[in-house]
């Protein structure tokens, strides 16, 4: 089963159960041990691989050397034959044959090393895949558990402090109301600001004898003088 598949099974179970046992302590220990083992296997395989690859290169060099040596010896044998030195040619031929035997052996060893290199590389790839899979598994299980435990702490804390989780709708309304209050307060402050600055202007106008109050005073004064004049006339 895939890692996510396993987590899915856990998440479908009851939450309480998850909080307590997403990570079966034993299973985790087994996974962790497997990770350690796989890592060790990788390290061992890698050092082995370097050794085998070195031998592979050595045997390749040796093969090259033997091939050259055979050509050299064969040339010498031909020369000996040309000069009628049959016994010497025979002796050289013996060495060529020995070289050939050694070459065969080295070629077999070389093929064998190449095979081992391939196998070790496969092994390392497989072990690394396993480590990755187990690590993902442990990490996911731990993360799931951590999240559910955190949720439990949060719920418990909300219960303990007496505060209650309010409904989403209510939360939204409260936040919006607060926001509107703030907006209202800001609008009110702005209006007040404008009003005071307007009043200030009117005051300055009045002081200069312009506008409502100054006009009214003049009109009233005129009325009074008119009344006084009328009274004098009657008298």
């Amino acid at each position: 089963m895939s890692v996510i598949g396993k987590i899915l099974t856990l998440v479908r179970g009851s939450a309480r159960e998850i909080g307590e046992s997403v990570v079966d302590a034993n299973a985790t220990r087994i996974y962790e041990q497997e990770i350690v083992d796989a890592r060790n296997a990788i390290m061992k395989a890698k050092s082995e691989l370097t050794g085998v690859m070195a031998k592979e290169m050595q045997s390749a060099r040796e093969i090259e050397r033997l091939r050259k040596e055979m050509i050299r010896l064969e040339n010498l044998a031909v020369e000996a034959l040309d000069k009628g030195e049959d016994a010497l040619a025979e002796e050289v031929a013996g060495k060529v044959a020995a070289c050939e035997a050694e070459l065969e052996e080295q070629s077999r060893a070389h093929a064998n090393y190449a095979l081992q290199v391939g196998k070790l590389k496969e092994l390392i790839k497989a072990a690394e895949g396993k480590v990755r899979e187990h690590e993902r598994e442990v990490a996911m299980a731990r993360t799931t558990e951590s999240v559910y435990r955190a949720t439990r702490s949060i719920s418990d804390n909300i219960g303990a402090t007496g505060s209650k989780l309010v409904s989403a709708r209510e939360s939204l309304e409260r936040i919006k109301r607060r926001h509107e209050d703030l907006a209202d307060r800001m609008a009110a402050a702005e209006a007040l600001d404008k009003e005071t600055s307007t009043r200030g202007l009117e005051q300055r106008l009045a002081e200069a004898g312009i506008g409502g109050d100054a006009e009214r005073r003049r009109a009233t004064m005129e009325r009074i003088r008119a009344r006084q004049a009328a009274a004098h006339k009657d008298a």
């Binding site: 990490a139 731990r142 993360t143 951590s146 999240v147 435990r149 955190a150 439990r152 702490s153 949060i154 418990d156 804390n157 309010v166 209510e170 939360s171 939204l172 409260r174 936040i175 607060r178 926001h179 703030l182």
Partner: peptide, 27 residues
């Protein structure tokens, strides 16, 4: 927030109803 895993509650002024909880695991 007390509990078995680290949890810290963040409350932003004006949004008290929507606290944010920060929690950490090894990943």
């Amino acid at each position: 927030i007390p509990g078995s895993v680290p949890v810290i509650q963040v409350v932003i002024g004006g949004r008290e109803e929507l606290p944010i909880f920060i929690t950490a695991s090894e990943t």
